[in-house]
Design a protein around this nucleic acid. Structure first.
Lengths: 325, 325
DNA sequence: GTCGCGTGAGAAAACCTTTTCTCACTTGAC
DNA sequence: GTCAAGTGAGAAAAGGTTTTCTCACGCGAC
């Protein structure tokens, strides 16, 4: 302990924390010596007393990290300068494993828990509703009276379709994922509102091959072909672009293609690189982090669902200009 | 505290830990009551005394999680039933941020640190050599006398090229990443040994477009074309497959293509799905986790570099049979 | 009947901080 | 010169657990 090195005992604490009464000379001397010997207080001991461990748990159900990593980056970013560290626990859809991780986190006195998933309309396979620590949900369904952060898929879809309209496209088709996903229905709804209710929606799965197949289906139909495709994610968009190229249809000259997710490794590697909708997951993580911190500190937080706006990322798969913004 | 609920004070501790002397009746009663009230000991208090926090830190420099996530999964998998939780700290190549995270971890009395990167021949931008906690390196360059886990790229490359030879390919080209990567040179060396020293190696970057371009280069050359491509990663392989398809060259009938990494989202979505080399990163993580735990518990661990064997994942981009294994 | 030993269970210290309380000493005022 | 107020710094408690030590009691043996 620094006390021994310097002179006194608990005076050191007061010196280092700028609390208590003492001579400024003593205070400075203690601080200097502490710095010299590289003294760092034991966070365990501190946490034991203060009931704050400066630790939170991130529970995730997303194996590939498609959503977790950006969210995690945002959380970490927001909390690192508050001295908070993050336990990452991947639960792989296993309720028993989830419970083990939750118990371990609680044992370690986390100040709060952030639960993330890979879809908005599914709960994690573990009940977090009656914990004695605050829980914030991000990109997964929360419980009554909880705080939940999610992307505004409706606004994101609107952004995409409006962009297609703005650059002059009129026959816009929507190739998307399974209809039982809430976000799929939300995006499809917004799409219909902007593009018109008679425009076709093709529901399928979240894969490139589905994007490929869907284009086959569309182009086999009689009548006018679409001049734009709004795809439910970047993988579908990529499959669609590939199918179009194979058919000799030029992207973006003949058909504009727009994706969703801005998953860089897919969107940026597609030829041409995909214009797409970014869900701002890092910002979502940041806000979730700050919120769980606020709750941990007892500050009041309005419960409810917070929808964060999406952002359009313009690359080359649509043609058109970069947006004015 | 359970003590109050039951009867005694520190007797509870002995009962729950099966230590000390006491009547078996008392012991059972305390255990039963503890279970009833859902008592769980405070890990902070326990850690304060035992000098073991049952917590380790994972320091990563890999933004996209390509390597970190599987490694993390392995670590977590190995340590969860030892009651150890993992702090994930992404340092984004920023030395200052790295230092902050390391300090935070040390303050929180982590039992050890695992450092991971995205290439074998680079160090993390922070010095971990003189910490008072054990450090294990995984997929990044370690320090003198440290324990480092890495994949055996030479063996992996050999696996790939031998497979191509086995299925009858003779004119095997190697399209790979930048030559300054140690693993690139290692793989190229193994490739030359198996395929022959006059076979061409094309060094480039880790992108699909490079794979695409490289095929263009190869097919523009005069003389016989390759009948197989050994690619430095799955992205390059995917670009190569795309380029071949555009040229009307059939994969795998005319040309076998093999990748490296087994990055599912790339390898499995390619048409045809890629045969590739898996670096067994999860196993690597598991071993790193167990090793840091052993070091934390004072068990002796031989320092040095441990190369873990890669595994061939046979899909459809090469033709041939599934391996006998 | 007394001594000793074994057994069950509680008391106390330790882990490292922070915070509150107390005490001694100085200084200023009357 | 005495008293009050103020100032600097150490003592002590608290936080929850584990571990070691101590104590009281009962029983068997002489």
């Amino acid at each position: 302990m620094a006390a021994a090195a310097a002179v006194s005992i608990s005076t050191a604490s007061k010196a280092l924390n700028d609390t208590g009464r003492m001579g400024s000379e003593t205070r400075e001397r203690v601080k200097r010596i502490a710095a010299e010997i590289g003294y760092r207080p034991n966070a365990l001991a501190r946490g034991l007393l203060s009931k704050r461990s400066f630790t939170i748990g991130l529970l995730t159900n997303d194996t590939y990290g498609r959503f977790t990593l950006p969210v995690m980056a945002g959380i970490s970013d927001a909390l690192v300068d508050h001295g908070v560290s993050v336990f990452l626990c991947a639960i792989e859809d296993d309720p028993a494993l989830a419970q083990i991780h939750v118990d371990a986190m609680l044992d370690k006195q986390v100040d709060g828990i952030i639960a993330t998933g890979k879809r908005l309309d599914r709960r994690l396979p573990v009940d977090l509703s009656n914990l004695h620590v605050p829980v914030v949900y991000a990109f997964t369904e929360g419980t009554q009276n909880s705080v939940t952060f999610r992307s505004d898929d409706e606004q994101g879809a609107r952004l995409a379709v409006e962009w297609l309209v703005k650059i002059g496209r009129r026959r816009i088709a929507h190739i998307t994922g399974p209809e039982d996903f809430f976000s799929v229905r939300e995006r499809a709804g917004a799409y219909h509102e902007v593009a018109g209710h008679r425009q076709p929606v093709l529901y399928g799965v979240w894969s490139e091959s589905w994007g490929h197949d869907a284009v086959e289906q569309l182009w086999k139909r009689s009548g006018e072909k679409p001049d734009a495709l709004f795809c439910g994610n970047d993988q579908i968009a990529r499959g669609a672009v590939d199918a179009l190229r194979e058919r000799g249809v030029k992207v973006p000259q003949d058909v504009s293609v727009i994706g969703f997710d801005n998953w860089e490794i897919v969107a940026a590697q597609t030829r041409p690189p995909l214009t797409t909708v970014d869900m701002e997951l890092k910002e979502l993580g940041r806000q979730a982090g700050l919120t769980v911190l606020a709750l941990a500190e007892g500050r009041p937080v309005e419960p409810g669902v917070r929808k964060l706006p999406c952002r359009l990322i313009v690359r080359q798969s649509c043609g058109g200009e970069a947006p004015q913004g």
